[in-house]
Amino acid sequence: MNDVLLDIQDLEVTYEVNNEVIRAVNRINIQLHKKETLGIVGEAGAGKTTTALSILGLLPKKIGFVKNGKILFKGQNLLDLEHELIRQIRGEVISMIFQDPMTSLNPVIPIGKQIAEVLEFHNSVYQNSLMSEKNKQKKTKAEIERLVEDILQMVGISPSRKHDYPHQLSGGMKQRVVIAIALICNPELLIADEPTSALDVTIQAQILSIMEDLKDKLDTSMIMITHDLGIVAETCDTVGIMYAGQIVEFGTIKDIFTGDRHHPYTVGLINSLPDIDSNQDRLKAIPGLMLSPTQITEGCKFHNRCPKCFDKCSTIEPNEYVKGSHRIKCHLFSCTD
């Protein structure tokens, strides 16, 4: 297919602290098509956020390193771009919503101004080949003001509140402001890192709907990072299940939630969710803990917790089993076809 927007190839990221090497992301491959939503699911420490940060070039300096791989955005490798150019892309072409709305806003600047700031920054500079046509014109002060009011309206905040400070807003409202900031430049790719984990369920439902509506209206593609398989099932088109820095299973929603060929970790993750529509008594927990990313392990990273582990799992790293859009990194399947 030709409409691939983002293509991550063999990405490998490490953090190096105190002579210790932490392998956060280990050779992952992800493709995102235009207008689609890709879910990245995994537990704390699986490397989800690190993947997102490397797309935006936001890995902590002198600690985080991309060791290998390419991040192709519309065919151009983002890792080759100069620092200045990446800064222009950030917020304008690719933008990000961070997990915690309480800490991602500046407490001493009114929200309207924080939204306008993005436009002003991207107004003051340059043009580049990755930018869309409509963003290339300079905007006047009045235009910026109007755009800010429009976007507030779109995320469901009355424009009259643009002079409010973040502390005057509830958690759900703050997250709406963060979404407004992320979408004000009409980005082509939106990365949402656990956008609703800090919110209550009824507010979560509101925020997810706003994000879906705006995504459709603005033709944005999205990467949704979450630990909640329910959110993935309801919002995403494709999913990557991450474990210990690897994508252990990748496919469409249908591939992941139906059929009987799955990575044992995916099965464990789904089974350990309390299902409110069934009446089971005990939860099927996955025993044990994720291996520390500082350990060098041979074989499959999940083998120490896997109920189906057999001899070669602990010694040989599994290849990917591929069937159509569905990929599984597990020895159970890699021997077949």
């Binding site: 009824t202 979560q204 709907s209 398989l229 329910g230 099932a233 789904i270 969710l273």
Partner: peptide, 20 residues
């Protein structure tokens, strides 16, 4: 509250989210 919980299941069609 019950309706707002996202269910981890595959839907043929996207579910219409009921919002309070």
């Amino acid at each position: 509250l019950l309706a707002a919980i996202p269910r981890a299941k595959y839907y043929e069609k996207k579910k219409v989210r009921e919002i309070i």
